[in-house]
Amino acid sequence: MSQALQYAFSGVTMGAIYAVVAIGFNLVYSTTGILNFAQGEFVMLGGMIAVTYSRFMPLPVAIAAAVATTAAVAALIEAGFIRRLKRHTLLHMIIVTIGLSIVIREAALLIWDEKVRSLPFFTGTESSSVRVFGAAISPQTLWVLGTVFAIVAVLHVFFRFSLKGKAMRACSANPQAAMLCGINTSNMRTLTFAVSGALGALAGCVISPMTMSQYDMGTSLAIKGFAAAMLGGLGNPMAGVAGGLIVGLAEAFSVSVLPAAYKDAVAFALLLCALFVKPHGLFPERGSIAREA
């Protein structure tokens, strides 16, 4: 029983991170129609930048600065580059974001190196643990879950009640109509990229003490996040949370049945199943451009 609980906690922790990546994917996809393959790279950047900053400033400030920096990088990528590719087809856009992810990764390899690094644990050390219903979990797990919960709550409020959030939703529902209502859709796209960059970076920071940060961590995160987004229903930001938790739990429990080397394969197998059985996800988003694409 307590072992199952242990698996469940580790699954939910990783699942929460996949969920954040999935939210980032969905945000960009629903407002711009782009499948951003570089989403995982934002998580990597967040972690790496925070590690570097933490040498010069206290941890909370370093994390905030890293999130801001990554958001700026994401916004810059949209405003300086993707915005200029409007006439391109979906095929081209996919290829461009694949190229971007390679370039970001290789740039990270040049700026830092191939070494694994990590932020210190936010509270306690790597050996400290908290007992929850008989399962021993690291305090960092609680930080991850708390942060992800906060992200989801803030996003929910943002989309529901703020003017900017409503404008973003309008862009996703119908870009042309949004433009006619006086919404600057181009700026909304940039904002979406910035927000998804910030989300990814924050996830990269909270997970860094547990799974470490490395220049090439982005690809597998991007794919698992994507699997989560697909499972939940592409284009529906909050459905990604459910998808992420499913992927994380499936992965964690697979270790008890299959050799650990196949752990990563489980997420992809789940993605394939999702594609074949429920291609529009468990909670398909109605009426957004996601459905028609």
Partner: peptide
Amino acid sequence: PALRLKGHYLAMATLGFGLIVYRMLLG
């Protein structure tokens, strides 16, 4: 299944497939 759907589901399906193959070979 992937080619019956619109959009770029094949990209995702093949990406997942490639990674499964890679992990299986490695493990």
